[in-house]
Amino acid sequence: MAAMKKRIDLALFTALGLAGIFILLPFGSSAEFSFREYSTDGKLLHSFAPYRWIIEQPEFLSHLLLSFKLAFIAVLFTAILVVPSVAWLHLKAQSFRPIVEIVTLLPLVIPVVALSIGVQAAFPDWLQSTEYELPLMYVVLSLPFTFRILDNGLQAIPLKTISEASRGLGANWPKTIFYVIAPVMRTAVAGAFFLTFALSLGEFTLTSLLHWDTFPTWVTSVSQQNIIGAIALSVFSLAVAFLILLLVGLFSSRSKKRTEVAE
């Protein structure tokens, strides 16, 4: 018995170790590469020069801020459109769920080129002339993931009966949403927000096809002239994404901590 457990542990650690190498090795290599600087006689040095170079670029901050702004708006749309829709689906329209589930998969199946043409055909001109058409499309592109996160989160909760219980105890609909539905959905919602944000921040293909210039498209154009600088930029944005993930993790584990205190 103990020997078997040991063997399972060994297998587990091997798998984890391999996965770790697979993920961390490219990241570590890029990080190493991003600090490279060559002296005049061609010797390899390491310094913060590529990062200094980033900050010196006048476009750096404007592109970064634009991408953050667009990602933030995409999250806002997810909060206003997607979250209530999925909650409503669970509360009142369970029979539509399978259909919606399939529809939300479409952004993965339809080529981005087709999507970009669809945008040009469907969006009114005034919308196409502003960068705010992008977050709308980011919401659509992240739908396959956000829908599944929210849907899975709600599967585990009998949303219908607990909201009925809440109403029976004297809470009207707004109070039920505020005190019951929102808190129980918090972890799933945080996950959906994070995914929308990260996907929007990194979206390249559609943005480029619609001829907008955001942080990812700018990084690509930078790589044409300064490859080390471009890698440094990528490492930087990865670090930012990791930081956000960490924050979301802390945020959603607060409820878990509360339960531990109770024991």
């Binding site: 909760i157 009998p158 009966t161 607990i162 009925e164 219980a165 809440s166 019951v180 808190p183 129980v184 918090r186 409820s255």
Partner: peptide, 8 residues
């Protein structure tokens, strides 16, 4: 029947 306590 399903208890329906508020899990949070």
């Amino acid at each position: 029947q399903s208890y329906s306590l508020f899990p949070n």
